[in-house]
Design a protein around this nucleic acid. Structure first.
Length: 696
DNA sequence: GCAAGGTC
């Protein structure tokens, strides 16, 4: 049973993060909360309507599921329990201290309120803190449910807070952790152990509910590319003469499937005369793009700067910690009215590059364009209006600028474009040309450098004008081969398939790269990646399909609304895992042999820097000298006589560039670590070297 | 040296 609470005690409010704790305290206290920090936990104290409040936050999960064994070679494991995170995750070493601080606060409490984000994870965080750190208060605690951190909503959430009858959401959230652990850890331990065959050092071969389908997207794309047979089609263009100017118009059907049809159009039109049959002009309004959520920001930073999604997230987090932008891990495209638009803009006006644009915005009414997507916990990413307290580095400046400009642009008026479409008839055939011109720049003055509107002028023409056909030509083209995913488009695919969360998708992609499952800028599966997918297809097919996620989602919803049992879900996970592991174990030798071979081949390939320009047939590879321990570049044909070699810097990670050196054809590498990546042709005798800058 | 999920 629950221990007695102190009748003279305070109300302890548990939030998910300090930011929320502060907003809750401000909302309930009307601004009179007193903040202090103890053991890494920020605590707010105040009195409201005669009630003493103490508001603290867990700062994410402080409990994690794990198995009781310290040994990672043990499997299968189904005996999974919750532990303080610091006991099982070294990145969470501070969790124990935070738990202790909250436990201490709970001892003086009379009443408890769970005020974590109102979703599976938030519910789980609050439940675990109340159960394990507050001596079993999860059932008696009140649940404050809110989806934005505005004062009105917070006040109402606390006014209507009730105990969590049935704990459906928490049971579902906790079951999700168990299920993911049982799937992921058992498969990963099996794969890693099975690949130890040839006696090399341990290498993690992992698999999980999100990793599986994501890797499979890459593999399926590769198969699609391999299967692709380009079909030809024909494109017809007409060149007309108008007042001495050549006008190019496209045939009304933009592709013809047969050569003969295309040839007939060109012969019909050659030497003929065209007549302008319609000229349509219209003015369209182009509204600004909606405010950034993390996915949109990652996409935009990829296309504008070439930043990978995880790099963008890291940079955005640094800007957030510097109080320059709002919390970046948001799905929202909304800027609630409660934000002080004017205050933020006035802050930005102090930065010279924005002052002119801001001044203009401040003259009008401030009503942002918003998108459809929302997020229970956070608004869209926006600048805070604070000035940087330290100089930003180049990449931080870029991300900051794009966030600021996007924010400014949503308050700006739509751009106006004059669009023209002209139709020209030649006998029975019709050609069209169109163009557009920005007549009022609107938001593009602020954001146009990232998403411009291109002008394409159309010569002045009127209905009834007659134009001589200079030439009608047809051109054979081929459907283009599907392209591989890059980090940005793979992330988009995950988002579309509802795999992972906004906070973890980029991380999962990095994990696949780190594991050696995919490589290259155009993400291609490695031999290891292919082999792992193949193995899963045979023995644990559900782990690489999105259907597992769909099914778990559905069943979690059942648990949440009381129509299903969390125990049944976990029990069936164990049953299904047992069956699939049995299949794997029976074939451990052959599976292990194959994964091991693929792993070795992939590791070897990852050392290849490029083709050998000396013997032309070998590959230049990264090699570590047994004698000196130093690394250098050497040719794979060394044993058959090629002595091509080159020294390398001994510090920093080496990454091969996509193209060899244009001066000498030796590989170019990036040396990473420290400050900026250092681009280096490995050939010490490269003609580009030894040339002073002022001689170039 | 394992998953996926939160927050910093």
């Amino acid at each position: 049973m629950n221990p007695e609470s102190r009748p003279d005690g305070y109300t302890l409010v548990v939030c998910e993060k300090p930011d929320a704790a502060r907003r809750v305290s401000e909302a309930l206290s009307g601004g009179g909360a007193e903040a202090s920090v103890a053991d890494g936990v920020t605590v707010f104290r105040f009195n409201a309507d005669g009630e003493d409040f103490v508001v603290c936050s867990a700062q994410g999960h402080v409990y994690a599921v794990s198995d009781p064994f310290e040994e990672r070679t043990v499997y299968p494991i189904f005996d999974v329990e919750w532990y303080p995170s610091d006991m099982v995750e070294k990145e969470n070493a501070n969790a124990g201290r935070r738990i202790a601080a909250i436990r201490k606060l709970s001892e003086g409490a009379r009443r408890f309120v769970n005020a974590c984000d109102f979703d599976f994870e938030g519910e789980t965080i609050g439940f675990n803190v109340l159960r394990y750190a507050c001596a079993g208060r999860e059932d008696q605690a009140l649940r404050a449910k809110f989806s934005t951190l505005t004062k009105e909503e917070l006040v109402e959430a606390f006014r209507s807070a009730k105990p969590n009858a049935g704990q459906g959401l928490a049971r579902a959230g906790r079951a999700r952790h168990l299920v993911d652990f049982i799937w992921g850890v058992n498969l990963s331990r099996f794969l890693s152990q099975s690949a130890l065959g040839s006696g090399h050092r341990y290498r993690t071969v992992s698999m999980g509910r999100v990793q599986g389908p994501t890797l499979n997207f890459v593999v399926e794309k590769e198969r699609e590319i391999q299967r692709f047979v380009p079909t030809p089609f024909w494109k017809v263009t007409g060149l007309f003469k108008k007042d001495g100017e050549t006008v190019v118009a496209a045939y009304s059907k933009d592709r013809l499937d047969r050569r003969a049809d295309a040839a007939r159009v060109t012969s019909d039109c050659s030497g003929g005369e065209g007549k302008v049959v319609s000229v349509r002009r219209s003015v369209v309004q182009v509204p600004p793009y909606p405010p950034f959520n993390i996915g949109d920001l990652q996409k935009e930073a990829y296309s504008a700067f070439g930043f990978s999604p995880s790099r963008t997230l890291q940079i955005a987090e640094r800007l957030y910690l510097g109080a320059l932008i709002s919390y970046p891990r948001t799905g929202s495209q909304k800027l609630p009215r409660s934000l002080n638009y004017r205050g933020i803009l006035q802050g930005l006006a102090g930065l010279s590059e924005y002052s002119k644009g801001v001044a203009e915005l401040l003259r009008g009414e401030l009503r942002p364009v918003e998108g459809i997507k929302t997020d229970p916990a956070h608004p869209a990413i926006h600048p805070t209006g604070e000035r940087p307290r330290r100089p930003l580095d180049a990449s931080e400046s870029k991300v900051y600028d794009i966030v600021v400009r996007r924010f400014l642009s949503v308050f700006a008026p739509p751009a106006k474009r004059e669009m023209v479409t002209v139709a020209i008839r030649v006998g029975e055939h019709e050609f069209r040309l169109g163009g557009g011109r920005t007549v009022f720049p609107g938001w593009t003055t602020l954001y146009g450098r990232y998403r411009g509107l291109k002008d394409a002028d159309v010569p002045q023409m009127n209905e009834g004008d007659r134009l001589k056909v200079v030439e009608a030509r047809n051109e054979e083209q081929f459907e283009s081969r599907p392209s591989r995913y890059n980090q940005s488009s793979l992330l988009e695919k995950m988002e579309r398939e509802r795999i992972g969360t906004k906070a973890t998708r980029a991380e999962v992609i990095s994990t696949l790269v780190a594991r050696g499952y995919v490589a290259g800028a155009g993400l291609a599966p490695t031999e290891l990646g292919l082999s792992v997918v193949e193995t899963m297809k045979r023995f644990a097919p559900s782990i690489i399909t999105v259907e597992l996620t769909r099914e778990i989602e559905e069943r979690l919803e059942g648990v949440e609304n009381g129509s299903g049992e969390d125990r049944d879900l976990v029990r069936e996970t164990v049953r299904s895992m047992t069956k699939q592991l049995a299949g794997l174990s029976t074939n451990e030798e052959s599976v292990g042999r194959e994964i091991d071979a693929a792993l070795m081949a992939t590791v070897a390939a990852s050392y290849v820097l490029g083709d050998c320009p000396v013997c032309k047939t070998g590959k230049l590879r990264l090699i570590r000298s047994k004698k000196t321990g130093k690394r250098f570049v050497g040719c794979s044909n060394y044993s058959s006589g090629c002595r091509a070699s080159a020294p390398l810097p001994q510090r920093g990670a080496i990454k091969a560039a996509a193209k060899p050196c244009q001066h000498c054809s030796w590989p170019v590498v990036y040396v990473l670590g420290g400050g900026h990546p250092w681009r280096l042709c490995v050939n010490p005798a490269c003609p580009s070297k030894g040339v002073k800058r002022n001689e170039v």
